[in-house]
């Protein structure tokens, strides 16, 4: 199970910020999330939303280890 974290407006939109999802790679994870909440699936794929796997930014596809932590990061605001 991958642990999925949402930040900023993505967490507000989804109504959750931390949950576990069964997925072998990022595209399966995106599909699982979109299947349940199409609006969220669209928001996660929007330009400017970055993805970090185990706290490292990734572009495109990535395999997910059983205990992977996947974070969806909307545009950063600075402090």
């Amino acid at each position: 199970m991958a642990r999925v974290l949402l930040f900023g407006r993505l967490a507000d939109q989804a109504g959750w910020r931390d949950r576990s999802v069964e997925a072998r790679d990022l595209s399966a994870l995106r599909a699982a999330l979109a299947d349940e909440d199409a609006g969220l699936g669209e928001a996660l794929a929007a330009p400017g939303v970055q993805v970090a796997v185990d706290k490292v930014l990734v572009r495109g596809e990535a395999a997910l280890a059983a205990s992977a932590e996947v974070a969806f990061l909307p545009p950063m605001s600075g402090g």
């Binding site: 930040f7 900023g8 407006r9 507000d12 990061l73 909307p74 545009p75 950063m76 605001s77 600075g78 402090g79």
Partner: peptide
Amino acid sequence: YLKSRAPFWKKEHGSDGVRWIEPTDRD
């Protein structure tokens, strides 16, 4: 760097509700 690019997400709670803030052009 901290004001424009650091990984934070900022929300303002105001009299007219809540809004997410993004860096300004000046930042």
